[in-house]
Computed example of a mutant assay.
Amino acid sequence: METVLVPDRAVGAPATTNVQLLQAVLQSSVQLGVSPEALTRECRLTTPLPTTEHASIPSTQYLRAWEVIEFLTGATDIAQQVAERYDPRLIGIHHYLTITAPTLRDAMEINNRYRATLSTDRGARARTSGNGAGSFDFASDPRGPRGAQLSAQFGVFAYFVRACDLTGAPLAAEHVSFRQPAPAHHRHLIEFFRTDSIEFDAPADRVTLRAADLELPSRFADPNLAAVLAAAAADMQSPPVTDWPGRLAEILVAALDDGPVTIHQVAHNLAMSPRSLQRRLAEEGTTWRAELDHARRLRYERGRAAHLNDTERARALGYTDPRSARRTISRWANSQP
């Protein structure tokens, strides 16, 4: 089914979603028995849908499609059902960049690097913990539309499906969390993720994979093709990342230019109180300390502080004591595989 969305009159948000992601979700819903005609009518779609790598739509349209699909199917587990059926090949170069990476951990990093090519509406974010485990967070505002919640849940399921497919292994998640309240029964989730470590009413929709699993090779790894795809991706005009975590990270990295960073300083730059910033961080499933560490590591890995003496490196990373900077860099090194 090929469709194109007619912008809603209320659409004014700058965030966008790649039409190929929408097409993959719509195709999965048709496999579930949803009538293409009903989708066209309820989502106010016309044909055909643009198929270029760069075509995008307002994210509000994508989120509305999720609400329509849930309504038409009546399924309480629609995010899982769509994730089990969707064809990631439909999202184009982003998919092939990911699967040709050497390992699952590399695929996570590539997904982070090019995530704005799929959506600038908050979206997915990969994190690595101190023990080497890797988490994928899918942001959604609990006060936002139902479509945003379904989209985030879909991200959790779809990422796990893709990780299993990429490695060819029946992975077991280390931990899974959902913002939604606990359902009456969730045996199907335990079976899906192969773990009983599942949390509800959590700060974020998240799936965490074990460190050892992240080192598994991709069965589609192809360094030659990966190099060609990376060169092609470099020419892609990716829209700017407008999600809140991305904005916070850039503010933190920039603030390090002025020395030690405080939460009061960053809260002021975000036009909010320190307490509101702490609350927002909790909603995103993170902490001030974790985000500051993430910003320092970004700055270090970008090479801005890699060839300085101890005192200069400490200052560039926002420390007054060189020993603190050395301990942090050592911790980062020890967390690498």
Rank of each mutant, 00 (worst) to 15 (best):
I57E: 14
T16R: 15
V4H: 12
P203Q: 03
R194G: 05
A234K: 08
T320L: 14
R280Y: 01
A101I: 08
T100D: 00
T60W: 09
A79F: 03
A254F: 10
I91G: 07
F136Y: 14
F192K: 04
A325K: 05
A249H: 15
D141P: 10
L21G: 02
L298W: 05
L21P: 05
Q27P: 01
L209K: 09
Q81L: 15
R85W: 04
T167D: 02
Q61S: 15
A173Y: 00
R302K: 13
Y96P: 01
A158G: 06
I91K: 01
P88T: 04
L45G: 10
F192Q: 02
G134P: 01
A139I: 14
P260A: 08
T167Q: 06
P223V: 03
A13M: 14
W66N: 00
F154H: 15
R297F: 05
R315C: 03
D106E: 14
M272A: 00
R89L: 07
R326M: 09
A333L: 09
T73G: 04
A133C: 10
A10V: 12
P181S: 03
P274A: 04
H94G: 06
G155T: 09
D87W: 09
P337T: 09
R122M: 11
A182G: 05
H294A: 09
S28L: 08
V228W: 07
S197V: 12
A169W: 11
A233G: 03
F178A: 00
G33L: 03
T103A: 09
